[in-house]
Structures are given as C-alpha cells and as structure tokens.
Nucleic acid binder design. Sequence first.
RNA 1: GGGCCGCUAGCUCAGUAGGUAGAGCAACGCCCUUUUAAGGCGUGGGUCGAAGGUUCGAAUCCUUCGCGGCUCACCA
Length: 493
Amino acid sequence: MPFHKELLEKRENLIKSGINPYPYSFEQSCPIKKIRAEEAGFLDKQVSIPGRIVAQRIQGKASFVDIEDFDDHIQVYFKKDHVGEAGWNIVMQLDLGDIIGVRGKVFRTRTNELTISAEEIQILAKTTVQVPISKKTEDKVFYQLADPEIKYRERYIHWITEPQARQKLVTRARIISETRKFMESNGFLEVTTPTLEMIYGGAEATPFETNVKALSNQKVFLRISPELSLKRFIVGGFPKVFTICQNFRNEGIDRSHNPEFTMMEWYEAYTDYEFQMKRFEELVFTVSVNTTGSGKITYQGREIDLTPPWRRLTMVDAIKEFNGIEVESMPEEEIKDFARKREIDIQEPFNLGLAIDEIFKATCEDKLIQPTFIMDHPMETSPLTKAKRGKPGFIERFEPFIVGMEMGNAYSELTDPVEQHERLCRQRQAGQSQKGESGHPVNPMDMDFVKAIGCGMPPTGGVGLGIDRLVMLLTDSHSIREIIAFPLMKPKQ
RNA sequence: GGGCCGCUAGCUCAGUAGGUAGAGCAACGCCCUUUUAAGGCGUGGGUCGAAGGUUCGAAUCCUUCGCGGCUCACCA
C-alpha cells in the first residue's frame, strides 16, 4: 500500500464529519496567472481559485497557505473569523499536496504579498500519499527531490514538486504542434500508418513481436518505421504526406535512445534529396524560432546556430576532414590497419562501403556540432535509395547532425521496382552470411512493397526527423528521458 | 559486460581514530488572528538495502548478493 497512515486518518476524519474530500467539480474564476497579470482589476474582487497546497504557515487562529496551479502560485489567507468554525476545522486538516478550492477577495498583505482572503474553503482532493514538496525561496533552495529514479519512474511526483520540469513537456508539445503547422502550411497531408505490421521494414532494427488472436495467433511486429506505408501513399496518388508516430526498436537504451520514440516522416513527390535538405533546415529553423524565440540556441553550454543554409559535407569528405585520409582510394589493407589502430570493428568479408560507414560513425559523428548534412553514403547502407548521380557505389542520402546527434535521415527514394527488388534480395543474401550491416537479422522481403513501386512511383524525396532528438536540442536536455513523459524503465524489484 | 557513485525516520540528508543513531521538513500535542524556510515549547517515529565474516562491540572494516543512478562499451 502506498498510503500514509496519518493522511489516511485525516481522510477518514473528513468523511466522518460529513465532508466529501473528493467532490465532483469546482467552478473557478480563472488561472492564477491572470490575477497576477491583471491585479488592478482583481483587487478587492471575489475570486474562486483551485490549486495544490505547496506551503503552509499556521499562525494561531490564522493560516497562510500557498497554492499552485499549472503555471503560477498565490497565497491564501485563512482567518478563523472569516471562514467560520466548520471552515476552520477543514483548514486545520490540510496537508502539503492537498488540492483545495477557495473563494474570497484579492488583497495585498502588510508585507505586500498578493493574497486571497478566503471566505470559503473546499477540499477538492485529500492526499493520502506524502509528496516531497520542494522548499525554496526566490534565490535559495532548501530541499528538493534529488533522486533521479523517482523523477523518471514516478513522473507525477517530479511534476508536482518541480513545476519547471513540466516546462520541457510543454515545449515538446509546442514543437510537435509547430512542426505539424509547418507541414500543413506547405501543403502536406497528415496520414496515419499501422503500428502492427505482418512485415516490418524501412529501417534496420530488431522489432518487437506480438501476435493476433483473431488471426490464429498470426505473428505481427510493432512498426520500426512508417517508411514503406508512406511510400504506398505516394504510389496511390497522395503527392505530399507526413506522419508523426511512435516507432519501436528492440535495442539499446541510453541517453539518446528509448525503445519507443517519436518520428516524423514525410514524402514529397517530384523532389530529390537536395530539395529536402532545404526543407529540413527550414523546418528546424522555423520550429526553433517559434518555440524558443530564436534560431540560435544553447545546448549544454554550446552555441548552436540553426540558421539556413547548413553545411553540406559528403561522408567521404567528412572522413577526410577529421582523419586526413582519402578512404575511397586506399587499399583494403591500409583501411583495415587504420581501423585496427582506432579499435573500429570492420566486418569480414571486407566491404568498402560498410567500412566507410563504420569509420565515419567512429571518427566523425561526435565532432559534428554545428548543423551539418552528411550526404552521399555508400550504397550498402540503404537498399531504398537512388544511386548518386555520377558517383558509382554511393547513394543520394543525407543525415543531418547537430551536437553530434543524428537528427534524421533522408533519401532520393529508389523508384525503379526492378532495382528495388534486386537491392532487397542482395541485402537478404548478405544478411544470411553475415547477419546484415550491423549484426541484425535482415528484414523480411516485402513483395507487396515491390509490387507497389511497380505500379509507378513518382520521383520522391523522403525524410525522417527524430522528434525526441529535436526536443532534446531545443530544450537543452542531456537525456532523452527528460523529454519523454514516461520513459521505459526497468521494473522495480 | 566494465568503471564510478548511492541505498540511514514519511521526505531530503548528516553520521570513519568501530562504542548498540542524528538534523531539517512532514506528523502529533500546546501557544500564537497579516505570515512567507513563520516562530516557541513538547512528543512519537528507524530490524541504518540483504546475508555472512572480523571484533568484547559494526551504520562505520572485510566478503558476497540485491536494487538504483551516472558513465563507457554494445546497440540506431
């Protein structure tokens, strides 16, 4: 039982004295913030305000209680003469964390504190769990919740005790809202794609599995990416579509990875990846301006300038810039030697494309602080992308990096159905011998997807944007757990 | 899996020349009708994460285990 004995007794006492500590509604005048903002209009006027008790100062037959609502707080003054015997009995039963409603006039005390002089008090929710409410003044914190486990596992306590912790989730909501507005104002249609799929694809990741009872326990997977669904929209005649959805990947958990995470993907017919780089930087810049007020932000002490245009750098050039080597023209043995010295794992049998990708990840990613589009990856890294014009062995793909984090992934989408089929086959063959690019079992062949492309898919630029990473960036959050309301945690015990 | 840190009252934490546990807040009682970390006096409350060991004696030293956090590795 999570309940606190003494608080339970107080609840009982209230019920015994004929008070329902969990009533049905409360008519409120306005948010507290409005009283503070329009004080002159409220002074000496009756208001009716609900809030959670965050501080209590009892003084004989008077009592001062601070109550808090979503984004402000205000002092309430209880005087026995004003609230009467019955009201006073309730005031004496109050605890930190209780939610109450008060009716009374707005005034300023001798010490000039904006206050509601209560004439009526109503309990709206009696706490039965003791919540660790922070003690602090304007400039000093006397104590506050420090246990990071409680912060993430019992998020409601985190939010109750640290109102500023709510702010990141508010910003998250606004980022998603602004993102949606940007897409819609550019003529995109928001669509919904299935979470449960018989065949997963569109990314390289281990999926979560479950089964469907109604279909003889047919095995199904939780989507790892909405890509293949969205391309079917394009084939079907929707030229500009996007979706914001949860993806599920049964892999590592760390400060930038949660097993379920939010992605936006969009597909735009008749465009290529060059066009989408512009769209991407414009989107991120606009969202930043509309949520933080600026296109220049600070992340973990570093100034980041999101103003377009961002730097464009091919993967091979990035390796050259940070390592001084021309990896394309190096003999196999030299590349292996280079990798060995830096403890970079190169798979056997040797494959130049995969080696380039590994070397890039190990030596360049964390150095890409200012917004940079890394482009033109080796062909082996994705079977869904068109070949790079004029550069055999490479593809038209880009990944935007900011503060060393990969923020998204985009292609000039492969639209030749025969080549698409061959590329998927080749990937599966490679998968049978070496378990794919990164040790994962290779995705199953989606023949229906190949058929869809065969029905005629216009040239298309497709982009994925990691919403959680973007929120981390714009809220200056070190861990993805800070900006996911309920991150997956190991079970207690 | 490696490294580091933590686990003591309801909450936040003190507590090593090893001597059977403390503070603040919360709770309970009394005083106090404009306080703001309100104040004053008093009371109750802990098998010190678990199990072994060393010792006359362990929250404290040793061993093992459990739980958690951070971090590195792995993994998109």
